[in-house]
Design a protein around this nucleic acid. Sequence first.
RNA 1: GGGUGAUUAGCUCAGCUGGCUAGAGCACCUCGUUUACACCGAGGGGGUCGGGGGUUCAAGUCCCUCAUCACCCACCA
Length: 847
Amino acid sequence: MKLSKTYNHKEFESDIYDLWEKADAFKPSGKGKNTFSMVLPPPNANAGLHIGHALMFNIQDLVVRYRRMQGDDVLWLPGADHAGFETQVVYEKHLAKEGKSRFDFSRDELYSQIYEFVGQNRSNFDQMFRQLGASVDWNHFTFTLDQNVIDTSYKTFKKLWDDGLIYRGERLVNYCTQHRTSFADIEVVYEDQKTPLYYMKYGPFELATTRPETKFGDTAIAVHPEDERYKEYVDKTLEVEGINGTFEIRVVADEMVDREFGTGVVKITPAHDFNDWEVAQRHNLEAKRVINHDGTMNHLAGQFEGMTIAEARKAVVQALKEKSLLIKIDDDYQNRVAKCYKCGTTIEPMIMDQWFINMEELAKPAIKALEAGKITFYPAAKRQQTIDYLKNVRDWNISRQIAWGIPIPAFQNVDDPDEWIFNENVHEHTLEIDGKSYRRDPDVFDTWFSSGHWPYVTLDGPDSEDFKRYYPNALMETGGDILYPWVSRMIVLGVYLTGEVPFKDVYLHGMVRGEDGRKMSKSIGNVVDPYPLLDQYGSDAIRMGMISGRSAGESASYAPAKIVAGRNFANKLWNVARFVEGVLEDKPGKPDSKANTTADHWMLRDLQQSINAVSSLLNDYRFSEAFDTTYHFVWDSFADWYVEASKREINPSMLRYGLESVLKLAHPFAPFVTETIWQTLDWTGETLLISQEWPKAPSYDDKQAVIFEEIKTIVAEIRLIRSSLQLKKVNLYFTDVDFLKDHGALIAGLAQLEGVHEVEAGQGLHLTQTSYSCWLDVDKETMDRYREKLEKQLTEAEKQRDGYKKRLDNEAYVKQAPKKLVDETKQQLEDTNTLLANIQKEIERFS
RNA sequence: GGGUGAUUAGCUCAGCUGGCUAGAGCACCUCGUUUACACCGAGGGGGUCGGGGGUUCAAGUCCCUCAUCACCCACCA
């Protein structure tokens, strides 16, 4: 087969993926002494993949291909996420374009509409996986709204209910009045902003507040218990003048009050402030809700009813002014305000009846497992962070007032609001049981509740064969940003349901930042779309470019130069193969690791080291270093030296063996190009590279390898001399060096010499880096020009010698450092002395 | 207010349990068309590893401290 001069990924990539797929190459083998299972964190089914996904897919596919070649029974399980709230927000925007709102439809209607909407975007999504070369087992593909996911979530809900770990309660929750749903604490983002701080008269007090509009919900005034200024009022009920006449209010003493802040007096609005809620619990205060779910004021706000929060604030301040109750406004006050992470609306703490999971209790066994080191984290520090998070986490609100999600399987007695029953007939709105009527909870689960089951539910736990074989997963690889919302919950729920951690290793990758080093964001305009890149450079190039120079947990900028380097490397592989195939065209045969030439032995030595290094680095998830090692073995050792040497001294079966090894080693990093090449080889038959065994480290003769190393030294010095002296035609002379007799043509070829000749006595420029006697045939004038260079070398060598000497003169070093190290230094000193002598001799000869 | 991470060549970044003259890619300089590759080959220049202290025979690596930049957590009205 004739190969084109440069590798063109477009010609091959999609065919190669088809080839793998048709051969069932991604299917778990069901054999092997080790299983290696991993779930692909399901991307949002309704959104395209971004460059961060590309990194994630690449890392995971790399691990999976390596494991497969190691002979493991590999299951890489793909999926898609319905992404509840996220997707509903997208759909709401879609509705808005048509002039509609989600509130025009019932939740059931919305659900079917969104289901269809998401379905339309799905085919696209599968294509993206293929372009990235993801060797996932498509047979195990799971969507987060598949029936078994729903069933499992219901079972867990019931179990939590029965175990008393879930409760229905009226609590203050984070609520977005724009999207009209509550959130878990972790979903709220905070923003620094300037909020006017209003000082107002409040009976005998002056107090400061950022929220004058909630004063109709005030049910107490709080002061610090030890604040002398206000001691006389504590526990009294005061008559206070407000906007609409006077009202009564209690004064309580509570540690929460900071005497230094404002006037040291706080109005307590339990229904609209988390702090105040706590105070209310301690002092048995009533909570009066004054804001509706749509963000308007209710009847308790009197003439302000129906106004939005912002309007009401203005109006209330105006009214306070008119009543001379407003003292001053501090416009410089900075505080942190909770925001909806989607629309930026200020989060309103709202009293709502919701389902909460008792996290303190539920997390206990998970914390124990983490503390016992049942899971290894990469980077390691994330383990303690997870433990700390779980130890402090508050109860988890899992109710969401949206349509797109798994309906909560709970029904409430119409006549007795305190009676709830568990029932999975969520397609019914009402149930009649034993003469009692029940109404379904209209809410759905927080998406993270069901996805917290992922390693468990995708394997159809706990009775399936899959579950028995592949649980716990070997690895959970995902972005560091979802350690808390996802990883920690999978651990908690996994341990709760199975008594076992859901995965043994956790590898967290960092964020892909923009080229400018900032977080990618649409508004900054530094977002990188992977698809044009895939088209331009190819999948392998993106993969290598994304992986190189990255370490666990660290965010790093997108660097296009690395993608280019990846593309060039793919091309290097291609051309190495092109050379080998061209040169072997008329020499049919099989690969063989039996060494013949000195270059063979040297290459095998390097290959052995590289295989060992890459394997151990990949075992430790050190992807960047593993790639680096592979890259330099292929490019520097195999292409630049071994292939070059083969042009003079050829061993066809070793060339084949070397190429095969290169392809295997590089396959996890560059699957498409390596498989493409594999398919062009005339001795690989119908086999696939993806299914080959990981190369085993070969053996070699070290003496032979050392001879080639010496040849390299000689060639390198000749190249340096030629380059620095701008020599065109040179001959090498030597006396009595056996390997030079045998490898004259090789050296001449590698160093671009006119010839290599054995002579009786030396003439010209003596090589200094080798202990053998070799000369270049240069005249006196050229030698003089070289003198300066030699003197520089001498100075450097002297500096080095002094360093070694100093180290060895240090008694403490010789005594305390490992013997191996000291011996090494002695050897280095000796070598440097020899080198110095050589250089000195040369300089003297010129003088 | 707590916590974590980062600071290494012009740029983007590696550098695991302390140990050869601190690396890579890109960029830069000089040559170069030789049985694959100019997406190439050969050679070269460039960093006292943010500042300061300490531990050690030995520190980019460990400890303390300061500075700067990220991120996370927390209920300051």
